Amino acid sequence: MRPAARVLLASCAELPRSNADDTDLPDVLAEAGITASWAPWDDPAASFGTADLVVLRSTWDYPWRRKEFLTWCDSVPALANPAGIARWNTDKTYLADLAERGVPVVPTELIHPGEPLRSPWQGVDFVLKPSVGASSRGAARFASGELDGAVAHLAGLHADDQVVLVQPYQRTVDRDGETALVFLGGTYSHAFVKGAMLPDPAAPGTGPGERFGVEPDPALRRAAEDAMDTAAALHGLRRADLLYARVDVVRDEDGSPLLLELELTEPSLGFGHADPGAKARFASAVRAALAAS
């Protein structure tokens, strides 16, 4: 690591010091000998161009300003994860790229503006979501016969010039949630479960469940690592070149793992649900990235 390295953690104006999950990262990095501070990515007073490393963390307003955000990413000399990864990963059509390369992905159809609703899965609930969006914003779950509402939702997303993903809803999520596996510097760190984010149309009172730490079984670990390796190779990188990754995995009705999302740009890393050493592992990954630059 270079002497007196300076790191900027990129946030957004709404949450300039991120959220409670990782607000104390500058203190954690200081313990590792790294000077770090938070700065909104669009702050003209922040000297991103001269930082030894800029880490994308909570840039959660990018879906509404993606073109501007990506231009800014391209302008940052030392960005983690890299600008090319951000360009690819902030549009969920990347799932099609991974599926084409053999990654078991939740079945996904893309509906471009002007195209009609297609749902090739008969008799199952399905989800419509914009290809550019954070968390579950813009995503909606529909019962198999609820076509009028789905067509209206699709039209609203298309009016914003969005490509729309349609996916069969994995009902195992209602029971088991999504398992989010976190990797730091390419190495597995910790995992947590996220409760179902989309309510059941037949039970409107249901909604997001709690989050809690978990030790994933080997099949989920393998699926997550395969997805990471495929994504890294697609961009001419090694897995270790990714400072962080969160791999969201669900199971199909037969119990086989399916990739729901691969978060390489600004994911919440679930430190609040991890063991006390997780943030120290993040600091070590930052040190390694600085040493490699």
Rank of each mutant, 00 (worst) to 15 (best):
P3K: 11
A5M: 03
A5Q: 00
L8I: 15
S11H: 03
A13C: 09
S18P: 10
A20G: 15
P26K: 11
L29M: 06
L29F: 04
E31R: 09
P40V: 00
W41C: 04
G49C: 04
T50H: 15
A51R: 11
L53R: 13
L53P: 09
R57S: 03
P63H: 07
P63I: 08
R65D: 13
L70T: 06
T71A: 15
W72M: 14
V76F: 08
P77C: 06
P77K: 10
L79F: 07
A83M: 13
I85E: 05
N89T: 10
K92Y: 09
D97M: 07
A99D: 09
E100R: 14
E100G: 12
G102T: 03
V103H: 14
P107G: 08
P107Y: 06
T108V: 02
P113H: 02
Q122Y: 11
V127K: 14
P130I: 01
G133N: 07
A134C: 15
A139V: 13
R141Y: 06
F142A: 03
E146A: 10
A150C: 10
L157G: 08
D160Y: 07
E178W: 02
F183V: 04
L184K: 00
G186K: 02
H190I: 10
V193F: 02
T206A: 13
G207E: 05
P216S: 09
D217V: 05
R222L: 12
A224K: 00
L234D: 08
Y244E: 05
D248S: 08
R251D: 00
D252L: 01
D252E: 00
D254N: 08
G255M: 00
G255W: 00
P257I: 07
L262R: 14
L262G: 12
L262N: 14
A283H: 01
S284V: 00
A285W: 03
A288V: 07
